[in-house]
Design a protein around this nucleic acid. Structure first.
Lengths: 152, 152
DNA sequence: CTGCTTGCAAATAGTTTGCACGTTC
DNA sequence: GAACGTGCAAACTATTTGCAAGCAG
C-alpha cells in the first residue's frame, strides 16, 4: 500500500464525501486538511483555530458539523481521553495514545498492542472489548529517565 | 481488614473530613452516602438526583463542591469513560470498568488485571502508566451469548 | 461569634441547533 | 433553481464561581 501525500488523502476523503452525495466545500476541505495534517488526536477547537488562520469566518459550528458528517461516513472517530479531553482522528489511523503527564507528549500505540489484554478479558471475564482507542496517562521514556536522575 | 457497613463507611469518611478541618454537614453526609451505596461509578447528576429525594433543596453546585473536597482529600476520584461520561468513585475501591454497550451493565475489573499490559508498555515503550481507572466498552458475557444464538 | 458551607443565580466551556442566506450540483 | 451547507446567534449540558445568608465549631 503506497503512502499518499496529505493532499492526496484530503482529495480522497473529499471523493468519499461526494460519493455519498455530500458536497465539496472549502470549509470541509480545510477541516479535513487539518485532521490529516495533525495525524491524529486533534480537538474540535484545535481544528477551528487552525482553520481560521486561512478562513477567519469559518465558524466552530461548521467544524462540529463537518466532524459529525465525517463520523457518519466512518471517516473519523471521536475519542475521549482519560483526562476528559475529546479528540478526533482518522478511522484508518486507529491507535491508542500514551500521553505523558509531564511533558505532554502523545505517543501512538498500535491497536494490536492490546491484543493480549483483549484475549485476557475474553477468557477471564467473557467480555468482548470493542477496541476503541484509549488515552493512557503516565510518564514517557524521556521523562521517566530524567525523573530518576538521568543515565548515560 | 473487616468489611464495614455502608453507614460505618460514611461515618469514617465524615471523620476524615473533620480531621482535615472540614465541617460535618448533612449535605456532605448525604452525598457521601450515595457514593458509598452506589459502590462506584456514579455521575455528579446521579448523586444530585438521588440526594434530592431526601433533601430537595440541595443544589448540584453543592454536590460538585463536595466532590471537589473529597477529591482534594484523596477520598474519591473522577474518571472519564471512553464514551465521554464522567463518574466518581471511592479511591479505595479503585477498579477498571467493563461497560456493556448493549445492556449497559458495568462490571468491575481489578486494577491488577492490567498488570501485564503495564509491564508490556514499560518493556516495549518505556512508558510508565499511571493506572487510572479505565472504562472499556464492549459486550458482556450475557449479551455475547444471546448475540450468537445461545448455547447450553 | 467567626468563618466554612450552602443555595441561588449567573458565568464558563464545549457542543448542538434554528434560521436566513450563500453555494454546489 | 433546489437542496444542501454555512455563519451567526441562541440553546444546551456539564461544571464552576460570586455573593449573601445559614450553620458548624
Amino acid at each position: 500500500m503506497a503512502k499518499h501525500s496529505h493532499e492526496d488523502q484530503v482529495e480522497q476523503i473529499m471523493d468519499r464525501l461526494a460519493a455519498s452525495g455530500k458536497r465539496r466545500t472549502m470549509s470541509r476541505q480545510a477541516v479535513i486538511k487539518v485532521i490529516v495534517d495533525y495525524h491524529g488526536h486533534v480537538s474540535a477547537d484545535d481544528i477551528a483555530t487552525r482553520v481560521q488562520k486561512d478562513f477567519p469566518s469559518l465558524d466552530v459550528s461548521t467544524v462540529y458539523r463537518t466532524l459529525e458528517t465525517l463520523r457518519e461516513l466512518g471517516i473519523v472517530e471521536r475519542v475521549w481521553f482519560a483526562d476528559g479531553s475529546t479528540v478526533y482522528h482518522l478511522s484508518d489511523h486507529k491507535h491508542h495514545h500514551l500521553c505523558c503527564e509531564r511533558c505532554g507528549a502523545v505517543q501512538e500505540l498500535p491497536i494490536s498492542a492490546l491484543k493480549n489484554l483483549e484475549r485476557f478479558l475474553l477468557d477471564e471475564y467473557g467480555f468482548e472489548t470493542h477496541q476503541q482507542p484509549l488515552g493512557l496517562f503516565g510518564l514517557c521514556a524521556d521523562c521517566r529517565r530524567s525523573t530518576r536522575g538521568d543515565s548515560s
